[in-house]
Design a binder for these strands. Sequence first.
DNA 1: GAGTTTGAAACT
DNA 2: CAGTTTCAAACTC
Length: 771
Amino acid sequence: MMDTPEKTQISSSLSKFEDSPIFKYINSLSPIKPVKSVHVTQTFNPLSFASLPSIFTSPHVSTHKESRFLKCSTDPSKPELSSADGTKVSTIDEAGVDVQENFDPGVSLGEVSFELPNEPSRIAIELPQTLNYDCGTGSPDCNPTPCVIETNCVSESTCTSLAIVPFVQEASQKGLSDGVEVQESSDKGLSDGVEVAATFQIKRKRETIGSEWESLISETSDLLIFNSPNDSEAFRGVIQNSLDPGTTFCPTLISQFPQDDFTDYKDQTEGTGGLNEINHVNENFEDDNVTNFVSGSLTDYMENRVPAPYSFKPGSNLHRGFRRRCLDFEMLAARRKSLDGGSNTNSSVDNKLDSGKAGGDSSRCIVPGIGLHLNALAIASRDNNNTKLETLSSGTQKLILPCSTTSNSPTEDQEIAHESLLASALTERENDDLKNGVQLAEDASQASAYLVNEEFNQNSPKKKRRRSEQAGESDSCKRCNCKKSKCLKLYCECFAAGVYCIEPCSCQDCFNKPIHEDTVLATRKQIESRNPLAFAPKVIRTSDPIPEVGDDLITTPASARHKRGCNCKKSNCLKKYCECFQGGVGCSINCRCEGCKNAFGRKDGSAIVEAGEPEEEETDPSDKNATNKDFEKTDILNYEEQNPAALPTTPLQLCRPLVQLPFSSKGKPPRSFIAIGSSSALYTGHRYGKPNIIRPPNIIEKHFQSIAEDETPEILRGNSSPGTGIKTSSPNSKRISPPQCELGLTPGGGRSGRKLILQSIPSFPSLTPKH
DNA sequence: GAGTTTGAAACT
DNA sequence: CAGTTTCAAACTC
């Protein structure tokens, strides 16, 4: 599938890179001298992306995604966050100005590293770009999921910075003259999660790209050579700066890392120091995860690799991703925790890792609960990602790569995936039990992948997330347009999804920002107190098998259902006004809709896709049997196209992982599920402990059995942590199973979604309880 | 982009 | 729990 990029191409790209203002800027800052002339064109053409491997490709994806991606990228930068972070996103645009910004650990590095080119072919062509930006992608094979494509990357500056890192590393590794220093700087910076991530990324790139890449690198290295030590320092400064912000993240991220990783990390740290740690981490990543991931095709990767290792090493990346708004919530919690543990970020991180159970925890992949939107998104994303996921899952579990090409924007998917991953990761933590190394690791890896994507998204400052519908919004990139709710009510998609509002949002008087985290958390709690499942994913699997009718279309997965059911009166459940439809699931008995014609499955049980059921549904008076069906099909198709994620068909999208919010969960009983979705995850996830899995409706169902809401308990149970067990009460309990997770998780395979869920997801336990 | 429709969320 | 209001997304023009 993957074409390796040719050197020539790369070269050209490099040249472009040099030309870019950013590059110049960097040069001015650092001693590095460009040997070759380069152009920088950033270039990530959407077109290029378009050609993704079939696997990844999804119909829509290409263009939208890109756009989306960009948008998403912005998030990280959010100003609010920035306070914590310090430099940040916004700067990216400015990048030229502040290198540091670029380096923000979380953001820039992460982005870069993460991007895995979805398409191999693309990679080859675009390598140059990728290099510049991130290229982590380089590994075409890598995974589709992560996909974050740098291309998206929006801002050159950002990209550049990213690119730089890799280069540096390479140089250092190779022993290029000055390269060494660079590394050092990075190493120093490492303490924070950021640097590590960067390293990781770099390695990744290399591997991914492979020999070609190396050759390129060598060239690049020349370009980048840092002559003076000073330069390195400058670099450091940047890094460090970034680090600060990163610290925040780090803890979180770290926590997510697999225990093994953590262990290693600790060991190194103890023994040597920050630098070592970082390196170590990177190595792990690279070696295990990254390399495989990158170098091989996904399939190969999956087959060979799956193993746990993949997991998290990439954590750093993940962390970054976390940073995103979704993460923020988590971050907060993490932060708090970390604070307790240690004042320093590093310490905090360590603490987290350690205490948090972290080690173990990291892996968790649970699907976090997702908000409605998220759920839908998740689903959609799944769809998009399905193939990928499946593939992955088959091999191993996980990796969910969110980025489905199909999905509109890679970014969104990615984000979602990341979120999901994150959430899952969090959950896993909680579940220490479950986490077997493998699964957990896998989960982590997945999460990381997602995160990576997100990071990219975020990083790219310019891009803002788009939530736009176009892209399909999947989720992560959602943005709201709240006028009166201050984004503190479930009316707000962002809030409902458990993520902070970001630039792209057009909201007014928004309080859903990191700055107001206290308010957000308090509000969230309040809402949860009323309805524990408020932030849970709206769509859950149902146990009942659905008749899948046609393979061809999407059958509706009966298994996936909206937790509460809709109450549509006029839309006939054929528009997005209907949450069921929006979520890509059919209506169920729980729905009070009138005239249900839900293309994914009518209340009466007939699914459009499915065999023909009687067309009319209960309510439909109109008879449109045939008509309806056709109509429905058409709608579905359209819907799918528009919202890849939504469709059930694809298995997994990633859901956004949510960050589970510690706080929310604290006291409360665990929700039945944690939604994979961001929101829930963030807020509730812990409590509930169970990850909801968002399942892709259709296809997924087939493979996996869905967990019925009723069943949800299973998941919960499994996870269950629950003591609290909220699930029951919550009417909505929804589980969302992320397709991925399920797939991956489920050992058995397909169907037993539940089992899978349980394993993988175990409950979220850890999170909340900790509190 | 403005206005309308829709149904969930919030409120009573 | 039901009815009403509020809200913002989805949709239409």
